[in-house]
């Protein structure tokens, strides 16, 4: 779809699993609400599944004016093609100007499929979303009221702002925790619109044979204290020190992507643009340089302690307390001091 559309609604794909809404979708409702208000349009949420209509009220409480509800047994558990069909048909029918998705495993499977069919732009892992304008140097025209999709760019300490002005809708994914969850208003009213979407045999061809879910083993977002280790930890064995410090302060273990990529610890511990965004009361960064993608996920922590032997490491720019030294020496001292407190 090529014609631009600047009057449509702002949408959130409301991801649910086993009849409960994902946090990131609720977080996105808050920002979508603000964006819609700035544009003077309505905010909508698309809720697909089976037996999920009740969840609409929560979406309305979080800011949705309209919930487009698609009920079908075929949608009980997520499969790419039926869900993509739902999104594409509803987008074609209601012409939203913005569609936001959580950058979850599901959202990252669905959003690009939809973007491709709609031939729409899609920016992954945005760390901020705003409304603004863009002057196209080629045609010398100014496009007003565009979605500014902001994310760190590869290539150092840089943040890129991405726009799409000649296709609709404008789409973006956002990681969990990036947008703060707003207090909902249970008194808000909104419309629930039941939609029917015709699914073809091809859409239904992939079969879900078996399904297994685990409780989340790490909950970084809810942690009051996070002790995070980076590439500077050096090895999987050395990571025990990070676990030990986390134990001493009663915190959860986090990591940079370098530590995850090196196999020191699992992906679910990654903090940052393509991991989890956290805002704990205390964040202790050990052997982490503080690349922009990492800082994006932790710089709003109330207190940050950085331990790094390089005094010029960028992590110190966001730290409240800085310890320039060898973490393998400093951490044992910290553990000792914590155990001896009182």
């Amino acid at each position: 779809m090529i014609e631009p559309n600047r009057k449509g609604e702002v949408w959130v794909f409301a991801e649910q699993e086993d009849e409960s809404l994902c946090d990131v979708s609720l977080e996105l409702c808050g920002r979508a609400r603000e964006l819609a208000d700035q544009l003077g349009v309505k905010m909508g949420a698309v809720l697909a599944g089976w037996n999920v209509r009740e969840l609409s009220y929560r979406l309305i409480a979080q800011g949705a004016d309209r919930v487009y509800c698609v009920h079908d047994t075929e949608l009980e558990h997520y499969r790419t093609l039926p869900y993509a069909r739902v999104m594409c048909q509803l987008i074609a029918k209601h012409k939203p100007q913005i569609v936001l998705y959580g950058a979850t495993a599901l959202g990252r499977d669905l959003a690009p499929r939809v973007a491709s069919e709609m031939r729409a732009g899609l920016t992954a892992d945005c760390t901020d979303l705003e409304i603004g304008e863009y002057r196209d140097p080629k045609s010398k025209t100014t496009h007003k009221n565009l979605l500014l999709q902001i994310r760190p760019a590869f290539g150092g300490n840089i943040i890129a702002t991405i726009v799409n002005f000649d296709r609709w809708p404008q789409m973006a994914t956002v990681r969990e925790g990036v947008m703060a969850l707003q207090a909902g208003d249970p008194g808000r009213t909104g419309e629930i619109i039941d939609e029917k979407v015709a699914l073809s045999e091809i859409d239904k061809a992939v079969r879900l044979i078996e399904r297994h879910r685990e409780e989340r083993s790490v909950n970084l977002k809810a942690a009051r204290t996070i002790v995070a280790g980076g590439g500077g930890v050096g090895s999987k064995e050395n990571f025990a020190l990070i676990h030990e410090l986390a134990g001493a302060v009663g915190g959860v273990v986090g990591a940079s992507r370098a530590a995850v990529d090196a196999g020191f610890i699992g992906k679910e511990h990654q903090v940052g643009q393509t991991g989890t965004t956290v805002r704990p009361a205390l964040y202790i960064a050990c052997g982490i340089s503080g690349a922009v993608q990492h800082r994006a996920g932790m710089e709003e922590s109330a207190k940050i302690i950085a331990i790094n032997w390089d005094k010029d490491a960028p992590i110190f720019s966001v730290a409240h307390y800085g310890i320039v030294g060898d973490m393998s020496k400093v951490i044992p001292m910290l553990i000792k001091a914590i155990k001896e407190r009182a």
């Binding site: 943040i159 702002t161 409240h320 001091a337």
Partner: peptide, 27 residues
């Protein structure tokens, strides 16, 4: 469809944090 609107360098400020010496007393 996606176009880069602008690229901003982030200027890092080095002030503003309390330096803790890497010693038992400091910690």
């Amino acid at each position: 469809p996606t176009k880069v609107h602008r690229i901003q360098s982030i200027v890092l400020t080095k002030e503003g944090y309390t330096e803790i010496p890497p010693t038992e007393d400091g910690v």
